[in-house]
Amino acid sequence: MTTVLVPETATPAEVPSVTRRSSRPWRILGYAALGAAGVVVLLPFYWMVLSSLKTNNEVFTIPVRWITTDPVWSNYADIWSKSNMGAWLGNTVFLSAVVTLLQVATGSFAAYGFAKVHFPGRDVLFLAYIGTLAVPWQSYMVPQFVMMTKLQLTDSLWSIVALQAFGALGVFMMKQFYETVPDELLDAARIDGMSEYGIYRRIMLPLSVPALASLTLITAVTTWNDYMGPLIYLRSPDLWTIQIGLKSFISQYNAEYALIMTGSVLSVLPIVVVFLLGQRYFVEGIATTGLKG
């Protein structure tokens, strides 16, 4: 479900902007454009939050009411009893945590092998990883489903764990980072008698905290938002994630506009919070690997 290509130019976005202060009309034009773009990006989110605080009849009115004087906070209480929101959120939190943990652990471990241990056949194996990154997931989802069925891994939360946790993304991203660590540092440790596992744990892991943070955030957000995996593999309603649950809620109560928006807010909120907390790592991870979920 992810595609990664090696960027040719990307660098961490820390370099100060080079443009000079421009003339007055240009500045005014710049602010006007910034304002317009801000409206286009944010208005749909404002609409979502606003609608979640209205009654159903108030959501669609002519003209549209862009403020509500009497917010219906009870929507945020009703949603829990009208839907299985609690269980969906629980499943999604569980999946995001387990997938992220496995992806970060196995990915960084394998990346160390690829980046810093020299042995025959290594580059061929890495080519296999890179090669499959170019294959769209949509084109092998069917054979993958057949494999999972043979492993009896369908209709269980573990099918999503298996699906997401061993992606090539983590290996690729961590390898990129490990290659920037000078070999001399590791050789010094080797001469001191440290094993490769010791070097990985005592030297590489502490050095790679920023890269690990990027990978953690990106994996967690991708897993949280994944729609296709759970749609294909999780048939029983008690296994549903927030995305599948919300979608079924929308089909079931298609006229409950306000509650649908309440559910949407709840499905987005945790991700926005996580993103705002770790924004720097998230953005750096994307700028250096150019990945797409």
């Binding site: 652990a105 196995t106 990915g107 471990f109 394998a110 160390y112 092998g113 690829f114 241990v117 020299h118 042995f119 290594r122 194996l125 296999a128 990883y129 499959t132 294959v135 092998y140 054979p143 993958q144 057949v146 494999m147 999972m148 492993l151 298996a162 699906l163 946790a165 061993f166 992606g167 090539a168 983590g170 290996v171 490769e196 990985y200």
Partner: peptide
């Protein structure tokens, strides 16, 4: 042996769920 031991945990999953399906 050391190199492969690093790759293995990820590679087994990758082999079964991505490489073989492709």
């Amino acid at each position: 042996a050391v190199g492969l031991s690093f790759l293995l945990p990820n590679f087994i999953g990758f082999l079964i769920l991505t490489l073989i399906p492709v």
